[in-house]
Design a protein around this nucleic acid. Sequence first.
RNA 1: GCCCUCGUAGCUCAGCUGGAUAGAGCAACGGUUUCCUAAACCGUAGGCCACAGGUUCGAAUCCUGUCGAGGGCACCA
Length: 573
Amino acid sequence: MKQELESSLQLAVEALLAEHGGEHDAASAPQVVLTRPKIREHGDYACNIAMPLAGKLGSKPRDVAVRLLELVQWPPAVSSTDIAGPGFINIHLQEASEASVLARIMAQGNAYGRVTDSDGPSACVEFVSANPTGPMHVGHGRGAVVGDALASVLAARGVHVSREYYINDAGAQIGKLTASMWFRMRELSISGFDEELPEGCYPGDYVVDGARQILAEHDFGTLAALPEDERDALLSSLSIDCMLAMIRDDLAALGIRFDTYFSERTLHDSGAVQGLIKQLRDDGKVYLGTLPPPMGKEVEDYQPVEQWLFRTTDYGDDVDRPLAKQDGTPTYFAADIAYHTDKHNRGFDRLIDIWGADHGGYVSRVQAAMQALTGKKHQPEVVLVQMVNLTREGKPVRMSKRAGTFVTLREVVDEVGKDAVRFNFLTRRVESQLDFDLEIAKQKNDENPVYYVQYAHARVCAIQRKAEEEGVVALSPDSVDVSPLTSEEERRLVRELLAWPEVLEQAASRLEPYRVATSLMQLAAGLHSFYHKHRVVVEDAALAQARLLLVRAVRQVLANGLELLGVDAPERM
RNA sequence: GCCCUCGUAGCUCAGCUGGAUAGAGCAACGGUUUCCUAAACCGUAGGCCACAGGUUCGAAUCCUGUCGAGGGCACCA
């Protein structure tokens, strides 16, 4: 509907420009964009096109608007238009065409607002990608929830989505994990063991649990008898599996599953990383050079060394970036561009990465590298998720992985519940830092917006049960006369439902899943407000049928939205 | 020193590819339950949109600067 209206107006704009002739032609016509006014009196859609056009033509905005309305050929659904304010064109739609949305929602069900497109673009959505060296913290959880919901929203709009977890199972941190595990295994197995945990190792209890699990399946004596490098290789693999199993379990508790777990190690083992570096060297995109010492940070051990540097400055980065460390092994950056190249080669049209804000400085170099390799700009598309400040009763909960004092994501999910965690993480834009208070999120009261939306859903279910009790049988949606729905509250609900596809479209195109959550809160508010003013199960059979259809449609859209967010839609609360 | 994000009601946040009177929840105050779930609803109060310039017919929104918060800045991931 919106597009129909826009193209109608666009034709009128072009006609108006033609009237003026001269240097104005259709190609120079400003783009007509309709908006939904905040104020109801301003119609269902509003357009500001007369203002910029007036500037172009040297006449008054209101005169331009008048002439446009003379020229335009509206689709039949338009009931009236008017010109308001400095020159806004306000468009009012016929109620019938609005209300027919109810039958459409019931016919389409879960598909309402969705787009299915077998030729649609494919996208790899990479998120979480936490090191398999310990449990996930709350910040990981936010990225996980945002990534998961974003993937769902994209899928709902015709994108063929694959959810992917990049396992950082190579590098020094894994060595630390392995050493920590071996320490705990010896501690558990050797009587009178009194060594101190080595510097840099992970002190958390989860390591002890992991060590116990591995010992349950592997004999300590056999392990101890192995040559050290052989034992390290085996233990690091077992440790990673163990940590990954824990992470998957934590993700499952949040209702998240991935299509692919991609191991960084395989990129090294297959020679993909070295191959990439060689290729870049052959292409002259890499050179041997020395980087200046980093600014603003105390670095005692800086020493100028020649390194293989990627010319990312040619593609908008601040400095060239090293691909290999002093000891010759590839940097994380080298592996990561090999990884992104792999994704690109797998044929994805879009690469979308959800990263924590602490990786913000990393964006331009990966985009630069990928542009150098594929020629595509802004690839990957990176969504930076800001930090979560965990508090309890307003006091910050200090977290340190090294000290082993952090609150894990799992503890929070267990304490607060999956739905509350997910919804709270999804009601805010990712750019804003998020305060998450354990005591507030735990309360099952109105400080928790998730219950507000879920309650609206449960409430419709209660109405449906009541209708059934009273012997009111819902007619086929097509045969319900919706003309009795004339009150302010009813019309508001219809308008909210009508806007739903646009909400999904915007959430997908802007990579902003929070729009779904805020939209659901508005719909829920409309439902609650309606509920208190009007009864559904009433004597007047025609009215009862119309209202029943309305609330069923509301329920359907609430359920659709909650499903996208991964939040349950309970029938009773 | 440089780069990124943020600064809107007492609190948590929407509104930001420029539009009409800056919104919601919580907290505060007052009201609503013979009636489909009060986890709800209705009302009142609450604002120099951090600050200062600029662009524009029009700026919370765009640009520049200042201040403040968070994150980042070779050989970690």
